[in-house]
Design a protein around this nucleic acid. Structure first.
Length: 608
RNA sequence: GGGGGAGUGGCGCAAUUGGUUAGCGCUCCGGACUGUCGAUCCGGUGGUUGCGGGUUCGAGCCCCGUCUCUCCCGCCA
């Protein structure tokens, strides 16, 4: 007999009754009746009830054993009496009657309680992550992640993609997020950077003629966390294809993601081809470039109706500052209490709006704070534009276009949540296409790349030469699911000539481009295939599939919001010897934390 | 860098407008119990209410500072 187990804890069934079996696992729960002891023994696969009868030498030991101790139990598989069957357990028709028992690992009292429904706070959970990961929900999430990644690999290989590795120690990229830097021992004063994405490498693999690349790629960006953004590192299904159009890339992503979402979730999922929404339309209708299409509300532009109206708070900014007015019609909420509208006005102000105007269609009349400023004709025009019926309410957002979109888009989502309008159990996918190539920097007023500077501008060189830069669109696209940006990609600019021009519009000289992107530029001089790609975020995909609101729930060992690993205590100080080898001298004194977290977190060092 | 929320025994939470000795569940420790399945019952240990100052006859609660966690903005080519 195997020294640890003959079966897993989710294997024994009535058919095994009478057999002698051996199980190993963690003591999940104990029910001690003094004369008889029940132990729920848990392993990766499931739970089996162990019965310990009185008289066994190990009865007393087991009854005093702490939860989560690891034991090996050998005994007879026995059918339970019909009235003691537990239908909630997969092994609930049988139990193992212990004859011998080995203690493999005796547990100390636990800092977290695992068998209860209530969940500990994030801090203890992350500090004792190896315990937290035993809990069924997180355990299942991590397993789902493993299966999703495996499925993605098989899909990609079936589509003729080859998986590559690219360097982790590489060069700092001059555009984009803050880099994580790694000092060089051999080259004093020089640094590697961890890749923000394998962007250049995958393009160079296309230049090298490999045609179809993919990688479950680790990406490192020193940016602050969000609920759906892990600080430090995350994974992308990075892919790149040669000799392709945007449509072909879309087809690959639609097939791979759709098959993944169908396979790993019971929720409905939009069948390809997915809706394509131009960036400008998304910003107008949804106030966001990652619209949650489960919310059945859309904004409209009503700037023209207010331009010459008597409502000076809107007409003034439209005339003088180029403000716009966006309207959000919401059906059937005239019966909401006054407090509902007051709270929404306060909420709008908290978002930076000056106020929140609205009109209520109530029977034959239209009421609301701004009704008295508008003529019947103007109100009729609004009713027509928004298709207003009795009971409907129209909210107005007047500001510079991006601010109006931001506030309107936020309130659209809030109303969707608060009014319970979000479609249940559904994944709504869309492509956001035709991103602008450039935008005006809000601080400096200069023209800057709005997204990826390596994207191919629509219209090519001719557009760069002749069009207003702010009107030029890029072959740049995002995949969005339920308001979560899953992926961003582009058809790349593979022409040095177009690249010089594109960068010139953003204020880069030829010399700048050559010094910063010389490698890619040079590669493109020796025969570069037209190519493009995309990189869906694996963590976010798993988060959506697992139904989690927080990305840490699908990462085995996540860092906290301040980019600390509470379990490994990273980042940490290093020895003077290590610093000396790396030619590094710290500039500031170590900062004294007021209260180290329980267990003594590392004191952070300020190297400003 | 900025804004919101939170911080009370090991864990999760409570404590009327500022008013008695800071309560409850779980864990833990001791005891009882032969069919439970979040076992039950009895008893017990465990707290400088994150930290430092202030107001007050009196502070878990109010004020100031500070630290920590979290959500958001900035940031994320």
């Amino acid at each position: 007999m195997h020294i640890y187990r003959t079966h897993t804890c989710n294997e024994l069934r009535p058919a095994h009754s009478g057999e002698t079996a051996r199980l190993s696992g963690w003591v999940f729960r104990k029910r001690d009746h003094g004369g008889i002891l029940f132990i729920d023994l848990r392993d990766h696969y499931g739970i089996t009830q162990i019965v310990v009868n009185p008289g066994r030498l190990f009865f007393e030991t087991l009854s005093r054993l702490h939860l989560e101790s690891v034991i090996t139990v050998t005994g007879k598989v026995t059918l339970r009496d019909p009235d003691t069957v537990n239908p909630a357990m997969e092994t609930g028709e049988v139990e193992l009657v212990a004859e011998t028992c080995e203690l493999e690992s005796v547990a100390d009292p636990l800092p977290l309680y695992l068998a209860g429904e209530e969940e500990a706070g994030e801090e203890p959970r992350l500090k004792y992550r190896y315990l937290d990961l035993r809990r069924e929900r997180v355990h299942r999430n991590i397993l789902l992640r493993s299966q999703v990644i495996s499925h993605l690999r098989r899909q990609m290989e079936a589509l003729g993609f080859n998986e590559f590795q690219t360097p982790i120690l590489t060069a700092s990229s001059p555009e984009g997020a803050r880099d994580y830097l790694v000092p060089s021992r051999v080259h004093p004063g020089k640094f590697y950077a961890l890749p923000q994405a394998p962007q250049m490498f995958k393009q160079l693999l296309m230049v090298a003629g490999f045609d179809r690349y993919f990688q479950i790629a680790p990406c490192f960006r020193d940016e602050d966390a969000r609920a759906d953004r892990s600080p430090g590192e995350f994974y992308q299904l990075d892919l790149e294809m040669s000799f392709v159009t945007q449509d072909e890339i879309f087809a690959v992503v639609e097939q791979v993601l759709h098959s993944t979402f169908m396979r790993f979730s019971d929720k409905a999922s939009d069948a390809p081809p997915w809706r394509r929404i131009p960036y400008r339309e998304a910003m107008l209708k949804y106030g966001s470039d990652k619209p949650d299409l489960r919310i059945p509300l859309e904004m409209i532009d009503v700037t023209g109706i207010f331009r010459s109206s008597g409502f000076k708070a809107f007409a003034g900014p439209i005339a003088s500052g180029g403000a716009v007015v966006r309207a959000l019609p919401v059906p059937g909420i005239k019966g909401q209490p006054r407090s509902f509208f007051d709270k929404l006005v306060e909420y709008a102000k908290s978002l930076g709006a000056k106020g929140l105007a609205y009109l209520v269609w109530d029977g034959e009349t239209v009421k609301g704070p701004i009704q008295k400023f508008l003529t019947p004709e103007e109100i009729a025009a609004l009713a027509g534009a928004g298709g207003m019926k009795d009971g409907d309410v129209m909210f107005f957002f007047c500001d510079e276009a991006s601010a109006a979109a931001r506030v309107g888009g936020d309130i659209r989502c809030k109303l969707g949540r608060d009014l319970g309008l979000i479609e249940k159990d559904t994944f709504r996918f869309c492509w956001i296409v035709d991103f602008p190539m450039y935008e005006r920097d809000s601080e400096t007023g200069a023209i800057a790349f709005s997204h990826n500077p390596f994207s191919m501008p629509q219209g090519g060189l001719e557009a760069l030469d002749n069009a207003d830069p702010l009107d030029i669109l890029a072959y740049q696209y995002d995949v969005v699911c339920n308001g979560v940006e899953l992926s961003s990609g582009a058809i790349r600019n593979h022409s040095p000539e177009i690249m010089y021009k594109a960068f010139a519009l953003a204020g880069y000289s030829r010399e700048d481009v050559e010094s910063r992107f010389g490698c890619l530029l040079n590669a493109f001089r020796y025969g570069a295939p037209p190519h493009g790609g995309i990189a869906p975020g694996v963590d976010r995909m798993v988060m959506l599939l697992a139904g989690e609101e927080n990305i840490r729930e699908v990462i085995a060992f996540p860092m906290n919001q301040k980019a600390q690993d509470l379990m490994m205590q990273a980042p940490a100080e290093v020895s003077e010897k290590q610093l000396r080898e790396l030619h590094i001298k710290l500039r500031g004194e170590p900062r004294q934390s007021g209260t180290p977290p329980a267990g003594g977190a590392p004191q952070s060092t300020t190297a400003s």
